[in-house]
Design a protein around this nucleic acid. Structure first.
Length: 499
RNA sequence: GGCCCCAUCGUCUAGCGGUUAGGACGCUGGCCUUUCACGCCGGAAACACGGGUUCGAUUCCCGUUGGGGUCACCA
């Protein structure tokens, strides 16, 4: 069905069947690839939109093409500035840089009208004077018969002189009535629908504003979009849009309709499920690279590989490997991917983030000593956190001062007389250590010796000490914690318990 | 309901006629260990069903069932 050809741009794949029956001239081979993300600014950038943007971005980068952003703001009532800001902000956070300035669809209205007029002139569109009441009657008649509503084409071939006075017409597409419209989708394959299933859709409303169906086609053409990668919910639209492309004699872009993301229960992703703005994921302490990696693997795969660097993703991503079935959103897996990226993160830059978040949370700035402790402690703190929030939480052990609260288990440990006795002994031994000898190795030797001489397991005295130093029964190596805290801070915390 | 799409462990998926059906998350047994993680080793867990085609179907075809999408002078 496809073959490799040589063009001035090098080798590329063409789909000869695209030439038939649409009789298109295939000239995309030599063209630069252009993708676009076209959200309507009626809300935040949700997870599905983020994935659509990601796939467009990756595909463009893979082929050294352009990734453009178009804000579909033709619905003036529902489009808002905050939504636009949220979308731009979300893309920015995910690191999906678009090329050039965003294009605002509303600003192209004049051009849309012009195209509608051209179609009118070429006979591919006609004026429809059907009133809202007539349309409503058609709708009711259809539902009474249990059929879906289809405009009956009553003005399709009517003489323009029949036009009623004082009624502004809508402009409708004169769609083919017989045959099939075929989309060769890079993800879904060849999809065909009978033209009799499609009615003559409105291109330009009676008030002169363009509909989405017209605007999308005109903008995609004008922007030079070669690949339309979007959610599967648009697959049905593609047929009608293809008809507009054909009516204008424009080349059809390649389509790739990627499956939607579902909630954990298989139903459409709702707010309840996590159809949140990407900002919500940021607030959950997730790293943008983790969200991106998770989204990439949701519906796309490359053998058994789970983790992809940006370089790998751009080198390997291709549309044909996108799964055709919808995927369920799994926050637990996202978190595990996040944990991976957290572990792999560069300590220095991660420390800066942790410190920033920590200061924000405690509404106070950290001392240099505390900052150094956190950076030193981070390598062994990282593997025990799934999110940045976890990491910030466990980093608190390095803030000066005795733990403000004890975990339940830590409380139990410190309530034991035996523990306190051992802790007292440990306090004395540690107090005798010279400042210059306060190293991880020495502390370990000392504690092991103490355990030996008391004839207890190391754990018996480690746990009370851990509770005293961290307020918890779980922490990184105590030898490390005590070393990083320093002699003074360590003794202070033990004394606070013994007091 | 019409039209369109989809169907491998609970979830994300590999597989593109012959495999002990592989990996990841989660669950679970163990090892490591001062605790908790990390890490390592092991385990349970899937081809929706029914017909074909074929020497042979998870894989190709048809149907059933089950999910999903879409049916505006919204986008």
């Amino acid at each position: 069905m496809q073959k490799e050809v040589l063009t001035s741009a090098g080798r590329c794949t063409v789909y000869p069947h695209l030439l038939n029956p649409l009789d298109l001239t295939w000239n995309n081979c030599a063209m630069k690839i252009v993708t676009r993300f076209a959200p309507s600014p009626t809300g935040f950038l949700h997870i599905g939109g983020a994935r659509t943007a990601l796939f467009n971005w990756l595909f463009a980068r893979r082929h050294s093409g352009a990734f453009k952003l178009r804000i579909e703001d033709t619905d003036r009532k529902r489009s808002t500035e905050p939504a636009i800001a949220a979308i731009l902000d979300g893309l920015d956070w995910l690191g999906l840089k678009w090329d050039g300035d965003p294009i605002y669809q509303y600003s192209q209205s004049e051009r849309h009208r012009e195209v509608a007029e051209m179609m009118l002139a070429s006979g591919h569109a006609y004026k429809c004077y059907a009133t809202p009441e007539e349309l409503q009657a058609m709708r009711e008649a259809a539902s009474a018969e249990g059929k879906r509503f289809r405009y009956d084409g009553r003005w399709r071939d009517r003489d323009p002189s029949d036009a009623p006075k004082g009624i502004a017409p809508a402009i409708r597409l004169k769609a083919p009535e017989t045959g099939d419209t075929v989309i060769v989708d890079r993800v879904q394959g060849e999809v065909r629908v009978a033209n009799k299933e499609l009615d003559d859709m409105v291109l330009l409303r009676a008030d002169g504003t363009p509909t989405y169906m017209l605007a999308v086609v005109v903008d995609d053409h004008d922007m030079g979009v070669t690949h339309v990668i979007r959610g599967d919910d648009h697959l049905n639209n593609a047929f009608r849009q293809a008809q507009v492309f054909m009516a204008m004699g424009w080349d059809l872009p390649e389509f790739a309709h990627i499956p939607l993301i579902h909630g954990p229960d298989g139903s459409k992703l709702s707010k309840r499920h996590g159809a949140l703005g990407v900002d919500a994921y940021r607030d959950m302490g997730l790293l943008p690279e983790a969200v991106r990696n998770y989204l990439l693997r949701l519906g796309w795969s490359y053998g058994d590989q789970e983790i992809f660097s940006t370089e790998e993703a751009t080198a390997l991503f291709d549309l044909e490997a996108v799964n055709r079935a919808p995927a369920r959103f799994d926050l637990v897996k996202l978190e595990s991917v996040n944990a991976h990226y957290l572990r792999e993160s560069d300590t220095e830059s991660l420390a800066a983030v942790v410190i920033k978040n920590l200061e924000k949370q405690i509404q106070n700035s950290l001392s240099d000593i505390e900052k150094v402790r956190i950076e030193r402690g981070l390598p062994s703190l990282k593997p025990r956190a799934k999110t940045l929030i976890d990491l910030v939480e466990i980093s608190k052990i390095y803030i000066s001062g005795a733990p403000k609260a004890l975990t339940e288990k830590a409380g139990k440990i410190l309530a034991s007389e035996v523990s306190i006795t051992l802790l007292t002994r440990v306090r004395a031994d540690l107090g005798n250590v010279e400042d210059s000898d306060w190293t991880e190795t020495n502390i370990e030797i000392l504690l092991r010796d103490t355990a030996d001489s008391e004839e207890v397991k190391l754990g018996n005295l480690a746990q009370p000490l851990r509770a005293a130093l961290t307020g918890s029964d779980a922490s990184p190596s105590l030898f490390e914690v005590a070393t990083i805290l320093g002699k003074e801070e360590t003794l202070l915390r033990i004394d606070a318990v013994l007091a």
